[in-house]
Design a binder for these strands. Structure first.
Length: 875
RNA sequence: GGGAGUUUAGCUCAGCUGGUUCAGAGCAUCUGCCUUACAAGCAGAGGGUCGGGGGUUCGAACCCCUCAACUCCCA
């Protein structure tokens, strides 16, 4: 059967993935090998695979596959995150489409809908990862709301509460009026928006016609003003200190305060204070003990403090109140203005700062070991620059609002026995709570009489336990698995969740295991499109990864996303990169086509082949050390590029071209064996990047019989490197290139055989004589002592090479070429001599540097001599 | 407003402690080849005042100052 010219990935991917699964290669159990563990950043169960996952997962798979080949017990734990806000929103939406309102359902009914949805759609993204070749230990798949996992989360809450690190209180929080929940500071995204600055005048209380003008971007909050404030140093307002103003529309009399928080340059230098709806105003309000007048309902409409605007949406009120202020003469003017507005990360609704009763984690003490151990590199960040960002956040860490007014998530284990603020206890079960309440109050409560907190916990309050809880490290402390796999080795994630997740996992690691959760954190960049835009659903600029895999093959896509994505750098993605990846797999395929077609006959190995084998042995070993080094430094793209060049340039373009016999000629046994053995090793190196084709070819070249698979083949050990061989091969390459160059310039067809003459002081053959003859397509290659006239020539390593002119030769062009070269060398000599004649250089520079300059001078002089003689030869 | 980072070929990036023919790689481009594994290929070539300016040094892509542009984080 004819082997197709083009590699067809679709045919083999499923086959090998099923084979690997069947053999259980992905599954890990603790043994006496060294563990190598990665926990996947669990994607949202609502998610479908996007390019960010592709990048992230490919990197993890590369690391895992290489570790497996290095003989480690590789364990990549997959799973999904319940993603409370995103998922709840999705389910609410879905129910709405079916004509069901969330408010019509009980909590239990809603949750049953949610779990049904999860069971049906929750695993899509994991199935997609399989197409990519991800070698996750699927038997270990976890979900952040699994029974045992949930137990860990709730217990951690109880534990932190008992340690006094969790408290409940009324604070200014970020309110998402669409999701109807509080969110953490990290879930607010500030964006610049075009808005307007409204100048509104307030009448000074007790005056006839004296006014003060404030500037605000939020005129609708005027109804909640309880003061206005100026800078104490602002001379414009000194005469008003201690007076009061009348707030328009509500006609409330509020004081004029002074505080240096107020920026004299901004607006009018006079600020209205609405403590209920702005974090800074809130602080000022606390300082001056001002009343907070809450204006908004949970959904962003105005409440009964909004007077005639009650029930109207906050942005609608902004328009209406502008009109009213204008008509009543309070609005002085408006200006266009750019300001930063907070948006909800999940719903994109504009966040409303709102006072509310929530649960918080006190972060300050918890953060200490987490900061320390990153700063001292116990946990290493790649790239290191992210340490700065991390430190900045940790040093200014704020308390973490962890309660969410949602149903989908881990319900807060607080039980209320009364109406008072402190009438609650925290416990795992109602029974336990009842007895605690009894202890606390002396009153006997029935478990059924207690009311559990309605709120659930922030998703990240469960994700931060991920590296511990996927091994049940909290529910079964010191079980063999947690002891074996934890701390995990590497974490691969995006810098965008450094605070949400990475920092908090580090905190949890130290708090609950007294140890780091992972040793290295590799931050990937953001995948962007050709135009540099972030890939997103709304822009529609994100290619469908599965479609890409269908088009280019999983291996091609993996190479495509890795080929230019150094750690921490954004990846400007273009499908042409997948094309490059696919072309590379095709190249590998054709190596197989070539080598497999060689017919072996027993004859003596040609010298050129022998030389090539010796050279490639060294070349391979050298490249292998470089590749290992790149991996050790998490320079994955470099490792790939080194592998790519080793295969394409060194192996295919040089080695195979030397070894390969002429058309329909047989090959000797030894050369074929050695070639296949090199190819095997190269396939191993390429396997982490291109698992499917490497497995396929591994079997096609005969490893079927041995019954082993490349996925568990041993990573090669770098052997001896003979530098002298590498050096002389470089020379050989240069000679061949020069010959080809002359062919090209003179339009001499490749088929035409040439003669090459080498003039050399020492009368010995070049090391790679036979190789040059073969690749240069030479009829003869001879050594001479005299210059040759009537020939093209080039200089290399102190030797002069001549190719006699054939017929139609352009003498003038040849002469000009030599002249140009001479010119260049003379310039070079001048700069070298300039250095050497500079006394400061000779005395100041290291002697080795001076020596090398002297050597350069000698070489240049010799070259000039040769070129001048050559030129004379044309006369 | 505060902080961090980036700027090297058309694009994406390497370039270590300032010193070797150090200005590099891949892709893209151009030229010639359907040569017998691969045209998804082969061979060859061109292309950069290292963001601008100043300084330190015998010597600067690299160190210092300054200006500019961009990116990210925080408020």
């Amino acid at each position: 059967m004819e082997t197709p010219k083009i590699f067809e990935p679709g045919k083999i991917e499923e086959k090998w993935y099923a084979h690997w699964m069947e053999k259980g290669y992905f599954h890990s159990v603790p043994d006496n090998r060294e563990p190598y563990t990665i926990v996947i950043p669990p994607p949202n169960i609502t998610g479908v695979l996007h390019m960010g996952h592709m990048l992230n997962s490919t990197i993890q798979d590369v690391l895992i596959r290489r570790a497996r080949m290095l003989g480690k017990n590789a364990c990549w734990v997959p799973g999904t995150d319940h993603a409370s806000i995103a998922t709840e929103a999705k389910i609410v939406q879905k129910l709405k489409a079916e004509g069901i309102q969330k408010s019509d359902l009980t909590r239990d009914e809603f949750l049953s809908h949610a779990f049904q949805w999860k069971d049906k759609h929750g695993g899509i993204i994991l199935e997609q990862l399989k197409k990519l070749g991800a070698s996750c230990d699927w038997e270990r798949t976890h979900f952040t709301m699994d029974k045992e996992y949930s137990e860990s989360v709730v217990n951690v809450f109880i534990d932190l509460f008992n340690k006094g690190k969790i408290y409940r209180g009324v604070r200014m929080v970020n309110w998402d009026p669409e999701a109807l929940t509080a969110v953490s500071d990290e879930e607010v995204i500030y964006k610049e928006v075009n808005s307007r600055l409204f100048y509104v005048r307030y009448k000074i209380d007790g005056s006839d016609d004296e006014w003060i003008t404030i500037a605000t971007t939020r005129p609708e909050t005027i109804l909640g003003d309880t003061a206005i404030c100026v800078n104490p140093l602002d001379k414009r307002f000194t005469h008003l200190h201690g007076k009061s103003v009348i707030v328009p529309i509500v006609n409330r009399i509020v004081p004029i305060l002074t505080d240096d928080y107020v920026d004299m340059e901004f607006g009018t230098g006079c600020l209205k204070i609405t403590p209920a709806h702005d974090i800074n105003d809130y602080e000022i309000g606390r300082k001056f003990n001002l009343a907070s007048i809450d204006l908004f309902n949970e959904n962003g409409t105005l409440n009964n403090n909004g007077l005639h605007y009650e029930g109207v949406d906050r942005f609608e009120v902004r328009k209406l109140i502008e009109k009213e202020l204008h008509e009543t003469g309070f609005l002085v003017k408006t200006e266009d203005h750019i300001n930063k507005v907070g948006f909800s990360e999940r719903t994109n609704a504009i966040i409303e700062p709102k006072l509310s009763m929530q649960w918080f984690v006190e972060m300050k003490d918890l953060a200490k070991p987490a900061l320390e151990n990153v700063m001292n590199n116990n946990i290493q960040f790649y790239p290191e620059k992210f340490k700065n960002t991390y430190r900045h956040w940790m040093e200014n860490v704020k308390d973490w609002c962890i309660s969410r007014q949602l149903w989908w998530g881990h319900r807060i284990p607080a039980w209320y026995y009364g109406e008072g603020v402190n009438d609650f206890v925290v416990a795992l079960t109602a029974d336990k709570a009842a007895s605690l309440a009894h202890e606390k109050t002396g009153v006997v409560y029935k478990a059924e009489a207690l009311k559990q907190d309605e709120d659930v916990l922030d998703t990240w309050f469960s994700s931060w336990l991920w590296p511990i809880s996927v091994f049940n490290g909290l529910t079964q402390p010191n079980n063999p698995e947690i002891n074996y796999y934890f701390p995990t080795n590497d974490l691969v994630t995006g810098p965008d969740i450094m605070f949400f997740w990475v920092a908090r996992m580090v905190i949890a690691g130290y708090e609950y295991k007294g140890d780091l959760p992972f040793k290295n954190v590799y931050y990937t960049g953001i995948v962007r499109d050709k135009l540099g835009r972030k890939m997103s659903k709304s822009l529609g600029n994100s290619p469908d990864p599965i479609a890409l895999i269908d088009q280019y093959g999983a291996d091609g896509v993996r190479i495509g996303v890795l080929i230019s994505s150094p750690a921490g750098n954004d990846l400007p993605f273009d499908t042409s990169q997948c094309e490059q990846g696919r072309n590379f797999t095709n190249k590998l395929w054709n190596v197989y086509r070539l080598v497999s077609a060689w017919e072996v006959v027993d004859f003596e190995q040609p010298q050129s082949a022998n030389l090539a084998i010796n050279w490639f042995e060294s070349k391979f070993n050298k490249a292998l050390s470089e590749i290992n080094d790149a991996f050790d430094k998490f320079r994955i793209s470099d490792a790939l590029m080194l592998t790519y060049k080793l295969i394409w340039d060194d192996f295919c373009s040089w080695y195979l071209e030397i070894v390969k016999p002429g058309y329909e000629q047989p090959i000797d046994k030894l050369s074929k064996e050695r070639t296949i053995s090199f190819f095997e090793k190269l396939l191993i190196l390429v396997h982490p990047f291109a698992p499917f084709i490497s497995e396929e070819l591994w079997h096609l070249i005969g490893n079927d019989k041995k019954g082993n698979d490349i996925i568990v083949a041993s990573w090669p050990i770098a052997g001896k490197v003979d530098d002298a061989t590498l050096l002389s091969f470089n020379q050989c390459e240069a000679v061949v290139s020069n010959i080809r160059n002359i062919r090209k310039q003179q339009n001499i067809a490749n088929k035409v055989k040439l003669s090459l003459f080498v003039k050399s002081q020492v009368n010995e053959q070049l090391n790679f004589h036979a190789v040059i003859v073969k690749l240069g397509n030479l009829s003869t290659m001879e050594y001479i002592n005299e210059d040759m006239k009537g020939a093209f020539s080039f200089l290399l390593g102190g030797k002069e090479f001549f190719i006699p002119f054939g017929e139609e030769i352009d003498i003038v062009a040849e002469k000009n070429k030599i002249l140009a070269e001479l010119e260049y060398i003379k310039g070079f000599l001048k700069s070298v001599q300039g250095k050497l004649s500079n006394e400061k250089f000779v005395s100041g520079a290291q002697s080795s540097v001076v020596e090398s300059e002297k050597k350069k001078e000698q070489d240049a002089l010799a070259k000039i001599k040769i070129l001048s003689e050559k030129l004379a030869g044309f006369e």
